[in-house]
């Protein structure tokens, strides 16, 4: 399943109501595509509208221009798309199992037994079996983020939109999750749009890296990362990786 974004412009506020200075676009004329089973990573300085781009594709924000998921224009959240937000946003009164079941319960309204099975499978994928009955406050940051990912995976999405999902984690947990995510994406043939401010994460995970300029966000560079999958973490030490890192770093500066 693919995402096609064409000439997307996003401004907050309504013309005529707010002063013109506040109507300046956050995103301007952004066009990008995510093909089937492709991972596109988006990097950009803060304020470049990365999260806004994701929210528009997720159908959570109105926009100007055109966004299509699987050929259908996006006006509200698409059933085959799941979002992983930056902070875990777990429902604190639900256990791990209850949280992972959430997406199956609302919107999809799956029967209880089926729901439980699907949730347990997703929990296993992220390696949290045994923590099913714990509440979010009993989980570490890394575990909470795994629950967040499991909740998205449970709905069997074909497109995953991820907004800096590993941004708040320590380096080791982060790398472990990056590696796992790669496996999941390959297994499920997912199309992924992955927002990050971490250049090496963008290169390691992306089939393509797109950089956004500072406000208004425009695409300033697109870079194909020509490395076969699955990639090992040692790729990050290679000379080619370092050269790409330097190039992307310059485009952001």
């Amino acid at each position: 399943m693919s995402i096609v974004v064409e000439h997307l412009t996003k401004r907050f506020g309504t013309p005529g109501k707010e002063p013109a200075s506040q109507l300046a676009p956050v995103l301007e004329d952004v066009s990008l595509q995510v093909g089937a089973n492709e991972v596109v990573t988006v990097i950009g300085p803060s304020g470049s509208g990365k999260s806004t781009l994701l929210n528009c594709i997720a159908g959570l924000e109105p926009y100007e221009g055109s966004i299509e998921v699987d050929g259908t224009p996006v006006r509200s959240p698409h059933p085959a798309v799941a979002v992983v937000f930056q902070s875990p946003h777990l429902l604190p009164w639900r256990t791990t199992l209850g949280n992972v079941e959430y997406g199956l319960e609302v919107g999809r309204r799956m029967a209880k037994g089926e729901r439980r099975q699907a949730a347990e499978a997703a929990i296993e994928v992220v390696g949290l079996t045994g923590s099913s009955s714990l509440y979010p406050r009993q989980l570490s940051g890394g575990m909470q983020q795994r629950v967040n990912i499991a909740r998205a995976l449970a709905v069997q999405p074909e497109v995953l939109l991820m907004d800096e999902p590993f941004g708040a984690l320590d380096a080791i947990t982060k790398e472990r999750l990056q590696e796992q995510l790669q496996g999941i994406v390959a297994d499920r043939k997912l199309s992924v749009l992955f927002i990050t401010h971490d250049i090496s994460e963008a290169i390691y995970l992306g089939d393509r890296v797109v950089t956004l300029s500072a406000r208004p966000g425009r695409i300033s560079l697109t870079k194909v990362i020509d490395e076969p999958r699955p990639r090992s973490l040692s790729l990050k030490q290679s000379a080619g990786f370092q050269a790409l890192y330097g190039e992307l770093w310059k485009s952001l500066a």
Binding site: A58, L60, S76, P77, P79, A82, V83, F85, S87, H89, L91, Y102, G103, E105, V106, G107, R108, V155
Partner: peptide, 21 residues
């Protein structure tokens, strides 16, 4: 938490489901 409501919407929760859950 407005973020929880946004999360619920991303899973296509209806208004009554958001109220309940």
């Amino acid at each position: 938490d407005a973020e929880l409501i946004r999360l619920a919407r991303s899973f296509r929760a209806s208004d009554t489901e958001i109220m309940r859950t």
